[in-house]
């Protein structure tokens, strides 16, 4: 069985970078895929990699992360573009989603601007059952 844990923005907004990352990694280390409302800040992304690397061992091989932000394109309608820019500025890190899963479960995350594909290694959960 695969567990996806959703964490709303409100649960993370008051936490420090370290607290946020520890919370994410705690779930990921228990073989859960974390789906976070909002995106991590740039320095939080590198802190996530650094802390993950400090935890890697023979059992925990790291993470597979993907952070999606809505792309604002100027389609010619300047007012619409301005409105979206303004909303983006107001919502800031609340916009987008962050997905982090254990490396032994997620083989690859394929992404393009339109969709995301999560390639899972289902043998992991089967191996665990045995």
């Amino acid at each position: 069985m695969i567990t996806i844990e959703f964490i709303p923005f409100s649960q993370m907004s008051g936490l420090s970078t370290e607290q946020k990352i520890k919370k994410i990694l705690k779930s990921v280390k228990s073989d859960k895929i974390v789906l976070l409302q909002g995106k991590l800040k740039k320095d939080e992304e590198t802190e996530l990699i650094k802390l993950t690397m400090s935890m890697v061992n023979e059992k925990f091989h790291g993470i597979e992360p993907a952070i999606f932000s809505p792309e604002i394109k100027n389609t010619g309608n300047f007012l619409k573009f301005l409105k979206e820019k303004f909303i983006n500025m107001l919502l800031s890190d609340r916009q987008g989603i962050t997905l982090v899963g254990p490396a032994n479960l997620i083989k690859e995350i394929k992404r393009d601007p339109e969709k995301m594909q999560l390639l899972l290694d289902l043998n992991v959960s089967r191996r665990k059952k045995k």
């Binding site: 993470i63 597979e64 490396a103």
Partner: peptide
């Protein structure tokens, strides 16, 4: 974001070498 010593074993290293390489690689990323 991921380092698995078994990948190094598959690439031809012996288990001890692979584990050492994985440990050094994680430090290298940091």
């Amino acid at each position: 974001t991921r380092i698995d010593y078994e990948d190094f074993v598959k690439a031809g290293l012996d288990e001890e070498e692979a584990k050492t390489r994985a440990k050094e690689a994680t430090k290298g990323v940091i």
